[in-house]
Amino acid sequence: MRLEMRTCFGAALFLGIVCAIYWFWSNEDTGTACLLFSFCAYALMGSYFFLQWRRRKGVPRPEDRDDADMNDGEGEIGFFPAASIWPFGIGLGGIFLAIGLIYGMWFLVIGGVFVVGSVIGFVVEAEAREEGPADPGMPITTTGDNPPVTSFQVPSSHSQGA
């Protein structure tokens, strides 16, 4: 996070200086506002990276260390649903929202319903994944007299109240 943090804070510093010079030189409001919002955006990203670095208590990631090799960065990165219909719903809702700006309020309502429903579905799909092998339906255990259990039959941690 250190490299990202320094890059964002450097860009924020540059944009802040340019914003001040631009405002004093041109006294124009629109360009000054754009530069000011750009400064704020980079400062916000830099602050986020700083807080992530502080949360890790200054322990560098493998990407930040000069002596790291490829094996230091291995492991699970995260869960990303491979085949999902929800991004299509978000895009369709965005189209309806854009059409609603032109043709009327009722398109905005339809687009809002599509976007909100699809975002909720996408979040629920990512959170409700089954714990088990990477290939759903493959046997997890085959012990003794019990038939093989598949990952479809294993309850997730969310359904157990944990």
Rank of each mutant, 00 (worst) to 15 (best):
S151E: 01
S156G: 12
F88Y: 14
C40F: 13
I110C: 02
Y103S: 07
D29S: 12
I140Q: 06
R6E: 07
V124N: 06
L108I: 11
I85F: 15
A20N: 02
D67Y: 05
E63Y: 01
G10L: 06
G132L: 03
W106A: 13
M1F: 11
A83S: 11
M45P: 01
T32M: 08
R61P: 01
I77M: 08
E4G: 15
R61C: 09
N71C: 09
M138I: 12
T7N: 14
N27L: 15
L101F: 11
F49C: 10
F80K: 07
E76C: 15
G93P: 00
W25F: 11
G91Y: 04
I95F: 05
M138K: 12
E63G: 01
G16T: 02
S47T: 15
F39T: 13
G121K: 00
H158D: 12
W86T: 08
G89Y: 03
C34V: 14
R61F: 08
T141K: 11
I21A: 03
F107W: 06
V113W: 08
G91F: 04
V59P: 00
A11F: 10
F96V: 05
V124I: 14
E131R: 13
P87W: 11
L97A: 10
A126V: 05
S26K: 14
F37N: 09
L15H: 01
G94C: 07
T150I: 02
C34W: 13
G117R: 06
A162K: 15
V109W: 11
